[in-house]
């Protein structure tokens, strides 16, 4: 039964994955609130199960520059995880973290070293709080690696999770979340457990396969 893939997923599993997404991004939102020191509201995340080939255009135009933060997870669950953020939200969070105020950013402005490292930290906090929600729901130990960052075309960044999902099937799972602070922060989570780990997550949640 370890052959389980997203291709055979049914509605009940989608609901479970949605719930993980919900709790995970709720945790992440609280973490962002603590980080930037403002009250924030989070919308119910939107979970999309889609054809792998469509992942490149799933969050907007393929060539739009976005920020991707990638890390590997290990221990009870092996796999990787990605968090994507649009440029405006990235500048907002980096400025908040670096305590820069009222900075006006040009549309395609690039990030300097300090900002990139602040964004890595943002990614670290957000993904760690997401993973800790997953860990406490499943009673599994999940250890994240250091985060890696890339600012490039959306489709190019999304080719990384697309390939990971492509190794086991033809479908990918994307969790879209919107957080409203002074500006609307639009972010996306992609969790890519290895095949064996899917089984572990779902059975830890009491779902027989």
């Amino acid at each position: 039964m370890t052959k389980y893939t997203l291709d055979e997923v049914n509605d009940m599993y989608v609901d479970v994955l949605k719930e993980i997404g919900n709790v995970g991004s709720g945790n992440a939102a609280t973490a962002i609130a603590n980080m930037v020191g403002t009250r924030i509201d989070m919308k119910v995340p939107n979970v999309k199960l889609m054809d792998v080939g469509k992942l490149g255009s799933a969050i907007g135009p393929e060539e739009e520059t976005v920020i991707g933060i990638f890390l590997e997870v290990s221990h009870d669950i092996d796999g990787s995880m990605m968090f994507l953020l649009d440029l405006e939200s990235g500048h907002y969070l980096a400025d908040k973290l670096l305590m820069k105020e009222n900075v006006v950013h040009e549309q395609m402005e690039v990030f300097d070293e300090m900002e990139l490292s602040a964004l890595k930290e943002v990614g670290n906090i957000i993904t760690a709080s997401y993973l800790s929600a997953l860990a406490s729901m499943t009673n599994l130990t999940i250890l994240p690696s250091v985060p890696y960052i890339c600012v490039d075309m959306a489709a190019a960044i999304l080719s990384v999770p697309a390939i990971e999902f492509g190794l086991v099937g033809d479908r990918a799972l994307l969790i879209e979340t919107e957080i409203c602070a002074d500006v609307a922060i639009r972010g996306y989570f992609i969790l890519m457990p290895e095949q064996e780990s899917y089984y572990k997550i779902l059975s830890a949640l009491g779902l027989s396969l």
């Binding site: 469509k54 490149g56 255009s57 393929e62 060539e63 490039d152 489709a155 999304l158 080719s159 697309a162």
Partner: peptide, 23 residues
């Protein structure tokens, strides 16, 4: 041409694929 996709054409037309990463 999308991801995991292919196509063929003839002049004067052309083909494009957007945002190749590791593909």
């Amino acid at each position: 041409v999308g991801m995991a996709d292919l196509n063929v054409c003839k002049a004067p037309d052309g083909l494009t694929t957007l945002g190749l990463g590791s593909c």
